[in-house]
């Protein structure tokens, strides 16, 4: 489903050039559940943003569903994103002024789906995360776990093929964290590909496979262990 080759992302300011991704290669197949791990600043979030087509790479190839998308313009990427990708963020990123229902409805609105149809889809998504009873509440009236469940509902409401999750449990206590991870797992079992950035060993165990990153590259687990050993 996703294949990236020699992907580079370089941030330039007047004084410094920061290499966030350094000729990174990676492949994710359909229905996979992949966790990306690595220390802060290793390029995880940059990678996730590029995979989510929120950002474009400096060079390299990014093939999504067989199409080379690294040179797509904003509009094309936006269309592709709308149709295929759902996002779950560490800080939930719900809109305070909108109700739970309206928050979940948002991607459907931008996909030009008719109101009647939207209602059915939103309700299904909310049922899925057991938040139907809170549909008319505002985000500020919910607990963190509940907010993240709403965010997950929003991510899946238009049945995306891929969900990108950026530390989905980072702001949650362990009980709520487990609930959210179970939710993602069940989505994966129904066929959604999931790529999740996490710091948590515990969470990474839900994934089929873990990609370790260091200094903008994928590295093997053994390589990391050697590094740790050397440091000691």
């Amino acid at each position: 489903m996703i294949k990236i080759t020699d992907l580079e992302k370089i941030y330039r300011t007047e004084e410094v050039e920061t290499v966030a991704l350094n000729k990174m290669c990676m492949e994710v197949k359909e229905h996979e559940f992949v966790a990306i791990m690595g220390p802060s600043g290793c390029g995880k979030s940059t990678l996730l943003n590029i995979l989510g087509m929120l950002d474009d790479p400096t060079s390299g190839s990014f093939v999504f569903n067989g199409a080379e998308v690294s040179k797509y313009n904003e509009n094309k990427r936006s269309d592709l994103r709308k149709a295929n990708i759902g996002f779950v963020f560490q800080s939930f990123n719900l809109i305070d002024e909108l109700t739970v229902f309206e928050n979940v409805e948002l991607p459907l609105v931008y996909n030009n789906i008719k109101p009647a149809e939207r209602k059915v889809m939103v309700e299904a998504a909310l049922e899925g995360v057991q938040m139907m009873h809170r549909r008319n509440h505002f985000p500020s009236q919910l607990s963190g776990g509940q907010q993240q469940r709403v965010a997950v509902a929003r991510a899946v409401v238009n049945n995306p093929k891929l969900i990108l999750a950026d530390e989905p449990t980072g702001n949650l206590d362990s009980k709520n964290g487990v609930e959210v991870m179970q939710l993602l797992t069940s989505l994966n079992e129904k066929g959604t590909t999931i790529i999740m950035v996490t710091h948590s060993e515990h969470d990474s165990r839900y994934a089929h496979r873990i990609i370790h990153m260091l200094d903008g590259k994928t590295v093997t687990e053994n390589f990391l262990k050697e590094l740790v050993y050397a440091a000691q």
Binding site: N75, S78, R81, N93, L94, I95, L106, P107, Y110
Partner: peptide, 12 residues
Amino acid sequence: KEIGIRKVLGAS
């Protein structure tokens, strides 16, 4: 931030 979220969710 709201604009950012909306854009991520597909707003043009």
